[in-house]
Design a protein around this nucleic acid. Sequence first.
DNA 1: TATTTGGTTCTTTTTTTGGTGAACAAACAA
DNA 2: TTGTTTGTTCACCAAAAAAAGAACCAAATA
Lengths: 155, 155
Amino acid sequence: MSSSLSESQKDLIERIGVYHEQQGMQPLMGRILGLLLILDDAEATFEDIIEHLNVSKSAVSTALNVMQIQNRVAYRTKPGERKRYFYLNMGNWEKDIEKELHEIAKVGEFVQEALTLRSNKKTEFNSYLQNLCQFMEYFKKQIPRLFRDFENSKS
Amino acid sequence: MSSSLSESQKDLIERIGVYHEQQGMQPLMGRILGLLLILDDAEATFEDIIEHLNVSKSAVSTALNVMQIQNRVAYRTKPGERKRYFYLNMGNWEKDIEKELHEIAKVGEFVQEALTLRSNKKTEFNSYLQNLCQFMEYFKKQIPRLFRDFENSKS
DNA sequence: TATTTGGTTCTTTTTTTGGTGAACAAACAA
DNA sequence: TTGTTTGTTCACCAAAAAAAGAACCAAATA
């Protein structure tokens, strides 16, 4: 297998795993993400993953399949070899982040719907909700600008 | 208990519950959040919650305790009564959203750390990571401005 | 053709989660 | 004092999630 990992590398992989787990990802998927981010080659074979993370073939197989469907990883093969070299698909991190931001903004839509069902018995509470909705609408509109302005700030 | 819920109210509570569940919250906590958002009174007693959501006392007790520690709900009592009236703490939704945005930005810190451990073997991959980090730094800096500009846009 | 390699699929096992219900405690009421 | 209301705690349980292990399969190789 590719060279063994240092303690600090293993530690970072673990923390990246826990982070992603808390974001709702399956534990092993988070670790694989971390591993592929930390390895100098930025890629790993099936076997590499099994040995570095100490997990079973089947677990890796299913995790990788899900991650490929989600477009988080892809693989290539090297001429002559049959092994697959899996790597992170870094091509669309902007889209991923955009999706996460929109996910946060979804509360606004629920609150909006709640407002249509609420009486005006508690006006102060309602106006809090109004305010929250308005912020979320504003926020959603700002998302594209965020990416645009970032690109501009680079040049 | 306080008046029974309509189908559309129950449906919305359920959807709010599922949403929060997917965001990592315990199922019952998400439902309670939804309930307190939908009830006209914007508050509910222990009993109300048990009856509206069909759950046990103990489940409600533990859920409410966690939610109080997290500062999501609070309670008051009415003069003469011993019952607690729980309500959503809407006072700091800005802070909550800010926290969520910073949570997203955390990947940037992991990637930053990964870069310090990585060799320069894969320069293209590394520069993707650099770019992601830079975006996250930019993003974090923009967060306060987002709230500020929203406030200004209202007046 | 037989064997090895690289990976998949299916069944079983383990672990984690979320919730229940009964016993308990504190506060008040009769 | 005894009983009732309001809520907490803890031991237990069911279901779901995650991983393991073995059988399997297809492609390459001997």
